[in-house]
Design a protein around this nucleic acid. Structure first.
Lengths: 228, 228
DNA sequence: TGTACATCAGTGAACGCGCGTTCACTGATGTAC
DNA sequence: TGTACATCAGTGAACGCGCGTTCACTGATGTAC
């Protein structure tokens, strides 16, 4: 292939028209691929995502991603890991202002979880669809981060006598189930008939019901109801 | 191709060895394809399922399924529909013996839901992954069936003063979220660390927490705790 | 400051593969007479 | 009861396609001297 032909072909393939790269190197292709993957999941779902389409959307050749990710699975695992880190951050930020009030913290955690799921639905869907989490230790660690926060708040609540006693893991499972269930139903669009309410309102209502169940009689009338 | 060659080739392709069909016609290929699809989902997940593999597992040629299903999606929609019908049946059977006791009914509904999800995980996964439910009206109807039962029990509970007042749909959403969340977490194997408990135990514990939240003070001490 | 050169981050082409679906066909079945 | 024939439910081959991944390559970058 002549030099002329190569240049012409590059022009043909191009990047997004009008945004042709000025340099041969991309600059931050790793980041661009992750973003492209998220956009694709949004458009066609996790099972419709292909590595070739991701490269295409990022404006590079189909082989380019292999400079940054060992395989398609590795790309997805990275997306999932970033998702868990963002979720953990969101949860941490939600409970920050409420230090010392575990009951309120528990509710905002639920709301934060559902909020993350609906506003980052591509992340959320990938997070729970990575085939083999054990193959990616840093993903595994990131996923644990969120659970650690939840368990901490619950055990704080128990120490303060505001949350039912019992294995924190059991109580955490109940809390996690509500938040995860509502999130999954919303993200999978199973709830079209409840359309008029915002995800936030739904989350507040649903977690409220659970919280009342988790509260001790001491806190039931005071703490848990304050937020609504 | 000569007749001899055709016969030889058919013998080569065969059905499962030793189980070669006696007749040219299968008998109940539709059923066999649905069962094969479930087995495949069990083995490789919904996104790994292919129509060709389904046909292979059922022992017929790759074109045969088209005598019974218009497309791969139609096959999956039928699997999902059967799943929703089985779930509805399980829910109906669970609440039957407890007629007149809506609080207990609410709990067994949650346990039945989680039980269905874990013991029919292939069905469950397909049920919530069919791309366009609206394209299959009978699937849509089957999916509504389960929700109708749940709403009925809730409104019974409200009439009897045993469940918090409010839009039954809101309360149903809370109940559905817990059951669905726990189911999704179990089916996606997010709960390896809680391994020693059975799905049943988990379901009872988790729904119990929610129920206490949904109960009125009238029922809180009596009805809802009786089952555990 | 200039330059040789190692390394990095892309490229286009190719590999082999399995997929969903369609087609013309044929063996099996059941029904009207 | 026997038979002609329409219909049903399979078959094997083929179509076109896009996929994940590998390869030898080359332009760009940065660093040692």
């Amino acid at each position: 292939m002549t030099k002329r032909a190569i240049v012409a072909s590059r022009r043909r393939v191009g990047v997004a028209p009008g945004r042709r790269r000025r340099t041969y190197h991309h600059g931050n292709l790793r980041r661009a691929l992750l973003d492209a993957a998220l956009k694709l999941v949004e458009a066609v779902g996790p099972k419709g995502l292909t590595l070739r389409a991701t490269a295409r959307l990022a404006g590079v050749s189909q082989a380019a991603p292999y400079r940054h990710f060992a395989s398609k699975d590795a790309l997805l695992a990275t997306v999932a890991e970033e998702g868990f880190k963002a979720l953990t951050r969101a949860m941490r930020e939600a409970i920050g202002p409420l230090a010392g009030n575990p009951t309120a913290q528990l509710q905002v955690l639920g709301v934060a979880y559902v909020g993350f799921a609906t506003s980052h639905s591509s992340h959320f869907r990938v997070m729970f669809e990575v085939a083999d989490r054990e193959a990616y230790p840093s993903l595994r660690a990131a996923a644990d981060g969120a659970l650690v926060i939840l368990k901490g708040v619950i055990s704080d609540g128990q120490k303060a006598g505001l949350v039912r006693a019992g294995d924190p893991a059991d109580v955490a499972l109940a809390a996690w189930s509500v938040a995860h269930g509502l999130s999954a139903l919303l993200v999978d669009r199973q709830l079209v008939e409840l359309g008029q309410k915002s995800a936030d309102e739904l989350a507040r209502g649903v977690t409220q019901h659970l919280l009342t169940g988790l509260a001790t009689s001491q806190s039931a009338d005071a703490g848990s109801l304050r937020l609504c």
